[in-house]
Design a protein around this nucleic acid. Structure first.
Length: 638
RNA sequence: GCCAACUUGGCUCAGUGGUAGAGCAGUGCUUUCGUAAAGCACAGGUCCCGGGUUCGAAUCCCGGAGUUGGCUCCA
């Protein structure tokens, strides 16, 4: 509810959003215009546009997501005006509001560089300050086409617009084809910031011309903008690449090659714990663990169709005794050959076979990103071979396992049901039953999901889980896919009750995605403060003076015997310095030992994110910590 | 792969044409101290690589590699 005091002193109460029709019943149109003209806090947007005609007037406040979008979309027009001032002759392709701001794709006569960004930002601020109105006008298609005959982008946009009348918005010297709505005047865009430059293809098509994309963000107030920038700063501190260096978790080395992760001892320990948990949980759920070779004769990838369909992402063949071999890009063919090494009865199914399978794929150099997008990665892969009747239960089991994993790690995720793509194999009936089965399970479990229309793989539909990184970017993580292709190509069959051979249904799935991406995400999720069971170093024992060293060794020994990863800091530094180092290394438990503790068999406990917790009997503490690890407890606070 | 930027000791970063710098980390010595940095000293660099311009290049130009932000594509 917004209350506006009108120029005549009356109060006008508005619910947002609201249409002209709504107002019409309450006040005169003339009065409405006055209300809108009055610069009342909370009054929104697109006023000039709609009062000229009889379309709906919408009152949208800046503190709603819709209002923020309008502010940002208007800011993109202001960005365009600023660029036009500084780079006359620039053509403008497309400039929408996005998640955290807005951008404009431009085709400038000279290259826009990072050094230009502050200038552009200044120009934008000037435009905002000038507070000129956004004015809507309409042209017929023919007039619009004539007016923009030299601008291929606008012509294209006009061609894509619907109807015979095309709306334009003008503020200052800049006019742009646009559906609106916009803020009434540029001043309503309170605070703008030009963020960065990037390349982007026209229509997102790599074969089209590459445009310059200028990113910015806008908020209705400077305070909100500052808060947003601060959040970005904090996100940078969570970046797994930054923490990975601080905690000495992993690296890539140019001499090894880009996108190939070297797991340092600390990172390897985290991975070891994740893998141990993963194996334990799989065995509990009736899975069997497989190992298959890292290279294989090319013949298998011809048969699987990978060479044909994924040839671009496979590494070049190597010659072994005159035959071409390939590094494996997928684990499935190996698993299938294991299946096919025997005749199987329906009585044996389902087989739940899993492998922590390392695969290598050629990912374009520009797409590599820390541990989240790499060229060699270990999938927590599994292939379930089952009968059609078993599909739903098996999918359900997979989702159950996946949810259990995510819960254990305290991870939030988003589920997507990806349906049949344009290029695909299989019959309509096959796709319908398969997609239906996936949907049914999602609904049976009450899992929220979005539909990714046409996002399936050519061989079947899938359920994708996306992990979110510190900056809110989504990364494809766990996936469950039905496959109509490989059972055909490899003749993967079982003998049914009827003594006839039937094709198995094959489910590909991961519940973490890959070790690299999952652990990279985990680093950001915990900001390096891992739960005790995952922490590479769990306990560090710090001596106050040399007199406590012998006792310290004893305590470390006790911790280690209880299975805890403990070490001793017995250097001659002051205790404050040792604590500082332990905290910076993000060791979850620091035990401080001095004369006092030595005599009583205690330790002064300091826990990460909690601080000094006072003294405890060492024997009790060791049991408690071991228990916390066994339960894979999440930290209290995160 | 495409567009743009960046690359200086282990790390974070100064240094814009005239003999390579700081802090932290490391090593040695001193210090034995109670909850986030003790002191002194020492050591450490093909300024990413290759070519060019120049009397002279970390610095300017060209090519390559790697990284970063996006695009396209993907676990």
């Amino acid at each position: 509810m917004i209350t506006i005091t009108l120029p005549d002193g009356k109060a006008l109460h508005l619910d947002a959003p609201m249409t002209l029709a709504d107002i019409a019943g309450k006040i005169s149109r003339d009065l409405a215009k006055k209300a809108l003209a009055a610069d009342v806090d909370g009054v929104a947007m697109d006023l000039t546009a709609t009062l000229d005609k009889d379309a709906a007037v919408r009152f949208i406040t800046p503190d709603t997501p819709e209002g923020l979008d309008i502010i940002r979309h208007s800011a993109s027009h202001i960005l365009a005006e600023a660029i036009l001032q500084l780079f006359p002759g620039t053509k403008f392709a497309y400039g929408p509001a996005v998640e955290d701001g807005f951008y404009y794709d431009v085709d400038a006569p000279t290259v826009i560089t990072a050094e230009d960004l502050p200038k552009i930002e200044k120009a934008m601020q000037k435009i905002v300050k000038a507070n000129k109105p956004f004015v809507r006008h309409e042209l017929t298609r023919a007039v619009a086409e004539a007016q923009y005959k030299n601008d291929e982008y606008k012509l294209d946009n006009i061609a894509r617009a619907q109807g015979d009348v095309i709306s334009f918005y003008t503020q200052g010297d800049f006019s742009d084809l646009c559906r609106g709505p916009h803020v009434p005047t540029a001043g309503k865009v309170g605070a703008v910031k030009v963020m960065s430059l990037a390349g982007a293809y026209w229509h997102g098509d790599a074969s089209q011309k590459q445009l310059t994309r200028v990113y910015g963000t806008a908020f209705s107030t400077k305070e909100e903008l500052d808060a947003h920038l601060k959040k970005l700063e904090e996100a940078k501190r969570r970046d797994h690449r930054v923490i990975g260096k601080q905690m000495d978790l992993f690296s890539t080395e140019p001499d090894v090659g880009p996108g190939l992760i070297l797991w340092h001892p600390n990172g390897s320990m985290i991975r070891h714990e994740v893998e141990a948990f993963w194996k334990e949980e799989h065995i509990k759920r009736g899975y069997q663990i497989l190992y298959t070779p890292h290279i294989a004769s090319e013949a298998i990838y011809k048969r699987s169709g990978h060479l044909e369909n994924y040839g671009d992402m496979m590494y070049s063949p190597m010659d072994i005794d005159g035959s071409p071999y390939r590094v494996k890009p997928m684990n499935c063919p190996g698993h299938i050959l294991i299946y096919n090494s025997n005749v199987h009865s329906y009585r044996e199914l389902p087989f739940r076979w899993c492998e922590l399978g390392t695969v290598y794929r050629y990912e374009p150099s520009g797409t590599l990103h820390g541990m989240l997008r790499v060229r060699g990665f270990t999938q927590d892969d599994s292939h379930i071979f089952c009968t059609p009747e078993q599909v739903e239960d098996e999918i359900n089991g997979v989702l159950d396992l996946m949810e259990h994993m995510m819960k254990t790690f305290g991870y939030k995720y988003k589920a997507f049901l990806a349906t049949r793509p344009a290029k695909s194999i299989g019959t309509d009936a096959q796709w319908e039953t398969a997609t239906g089965a996936l949907r049914a399970v999602l609904e049976r479990r009450g899992m929220p999901y979005e539909v990714d229309e046409g996002g399936g793989v050519f061989y079947g539909p899938k359920i994708d889980i996306k992990l979110v990184d510190a900056l809110g970017r989504e990364w494809q993580g766990p996936t469950t896919q039905l496959d109509f292709n490989l059972p055909e190509r490899f003749n993967v069959e079982y003998v049914g009750k009827d003594n006839e051979r039937h094709k198995v249904v094959m489910i590909h799935r991961t519940v973490l995605g890959s070790m690299e991406r999952f652990i990279g995400g985990l680093i950001e999720h915990f900001a390096g403060d891992f739960p005790l069971w995952l922490a590479p170093k769990q306990v560090r024992v710090l001596t106050v003076t040399d007199a406590a060293i012998a006792y310290g060794r004893e305590v470390v020994e006790k911790l280690r015997r209880a299975g805890l990863r403990a070490d001793l800091d017995d250097r001659g530094d002051k205790i404050g310095a040792k604590i500082r180092e332990g905290e910076l290394a993000r060791v979850p438990v620091l035990l401080i030992l001095g004369e006092k503790e030595k005599d009583t068999g205690e330790a002064s406990v300091r826990r990460r994110l909690q601080g000094d917790l006072g003294s405890r009997k060492v024997d009790e503490l060791v049991l408690e910590l071991a228990q916390e690890v066994r339960e894979r407890r999440l930290p209290n606070k995160n």
